[in-house]
Amino acid sequence: MDTFVQQLINGLTIGSIYALIALGYTMVYGILRLINFAHGDIYMVGAYAGLFLATSLGFAANPSAFGFVVTLVGSMAIAAAMGMAIERFAYRPVRKFSKMTTLITAIGMSLLIEYLFVFFFEGKPRSFPQLLPNDNITLFGNATISTSQILIFVVSMVLMVILQYIIYKTKIGKAMRAVSFNLNSAKLMGINTDFVIAFTFALGSALAAAGGVLTAQYNPKIDPLMGIITGLKAFVAAVLGGIGNIPGAVLGGLLIGAAETMVVGYGSYIGIPSTYRDAVAFAILILVLLLRPAGLLGSNVQEKV
């Protein structure tokens, strides 16, 4: 029993990270019907921004809660700026062309970010400083939870609540929902759609950066290609929950995280080796696309011809 709980905690920890990243995929898709493949790399940029801030401001040498918050917020701001810049200079110029053009631009953007980082910061893994003391808390029996895991749960929950507030209680949130409903009508209603789209990119990128910094606290090794697999799994999480649907992205993230950890923990009993954890996410993707293309929480929208 305690082993199962332990595996669940492990799974939900990485699931929370997937959820944070999946939110960015789903918001951008909701508004532009674009899968922003560079989003996983924004997560990586967030981790590097955190490393840069933590070392240059001296928090690495003197860990403190204040240092952690500054690093987290600072890297979210840097990533938000980067997300907006990518939207402004890469996606906006091609938005008037076909969806495929934007999609391919996104793939190119993703590779560009990855290899620019390899070029400028080397491909070698870097260790991320521990900004908060890490202790273990025994829940019961053998089940333990580390403070870095609690941190991931708490911070991601807080960020998701803030996101809900922004989307449902503020004016810009209302504008986002309007643009998501119909971009052209929103434009006719006097909504500055370019601004709303830029804001959506900023919001999604900030969440991904938070995921990057939190992961780096938990698994303190970052490298320029860390966003590829994690980003793809977060994308699967967004599709699983129903792409474009915000609670769906969170649910999908937690499910993917739990599923892959359960495969590692118990897969061998049913003949699935633990190294198939990555395959599980994609197997789920195929099943979702076959059985419920709209995702768990997504609604089936009839395309009008």
């Binding site: 082993t3 332990q6 595996q7 492990n10 799974g11 920890t13 990485i14 990270i17 053998n142 992961t215 938990y218 698994n219 860390m226 590829i228 697999i229 994690t230 892959e260 950890t261 495969v263 590692v264 923990g265 080796p273 633990s274 190294t275 954890r277 990555d278």
Partner: peptide, 20 residues
């Protein structure tokens, strides 16, 4: 005999299994 890949986000799944 457990295994991991270099891109695994964490190793606690395998380790929890071994711990038992």
């Amino acid at each position: 005999k457990e295994a991991y890949t270099q891109s695994d986000p964490d190793f606690k799944g395998q380790l929890t299994k071994i711990r038992d």
